[in-house]
Design a binder for these strands. Structure first.
Lengths: 121, 121
DNA sequence: CTGAATCCTTGACGATACTG
DNA sequence: CAGTATCGTCAAGGATTCAG
């Protein structure tokens, strides 16, 4: 059973539930990159998230794993190699992420900020 | 100029931006209710958000107002009457909210939780 | 390369009471 | 009715260092 976090409380409101799952500083972007790029390694992901410490990245990844959004595959090699990929469940939110990306880009533009392109690595 | 909050920092990533705007315990649901019900009063909104204190509701509403998602109309009557409604900008995220509602409902069902219906008041 | 350990800051959010 | 005021908690997230 996935470990629950603080904001998972009683009334099962669908919107609140959805937001709780992708809340967390980088979860949305992580899922987005995995959607676009497919399988990614830890540092590969890390390079795409300027300002995210490894500690926090690890935490967010673990939570996404607990919530069955991603899988974590460890290869027994030296140096270590760990790959992250979306599960079926993880792929199912892709439409929402894409819409958020589009909407957010337009929002940024309306405010005169050029959104950084979120393209494949 | 809208007051910015802590998590608005440098790299203008569209997804991060979108998430930041609807982060906050109840913002998503507030916007959802306003989308479905149109104009709503403070206590009307409050009744739909069990567990949300007036203090927090006020805060979230002010932030949504600062971000130009909603308007706040005060009527000079006794007893006081304040109405909240979506702006054009606020209406533009409706598709995302609807998708989140649908996706979340399915997610809750997969976990054996019956989502509470988010219908009009 | 992929983290874990440790320590710390801060701000989101809660509880309760009160008011024009 | 629609908030404010005050006080408090707690966990998310940051900084830095170390390790298999």
């Amino acid at each position: 059973m996935p470990k629950r976090r603080s904001y998972d409380e009683a009334p099962p409101c669908a919107i609140v539930a959805t937001l709780n799952l992708i809340n967390g500083r980088w979860k949305g972007v992580i899922l987005y990159y995995l959607t676009v790029n497919g399988t990614m390694r830890f540092n590969e992901l890390h390079r795409h998230l300027p300002g995210c410490t490894p500690r926090l990245l690890t935490k967010q990844l673990r939570e996404l794993e607990d919530d069955c959004f991603i899988t974590r595959t460890v290869y027994a090699v030296v140096p270590p190699k760990v790959e992250y990929a979306l599960t079926e469940e993880g792929r199912s939110i892709a439409p929402i992420l894409m819409q958020m990306n589009d909407w957010g880009a337009r929002w940024l533009q309306r405010r005169g900020l050029r959104p950084q392109s979120n393209e494949a690595a």
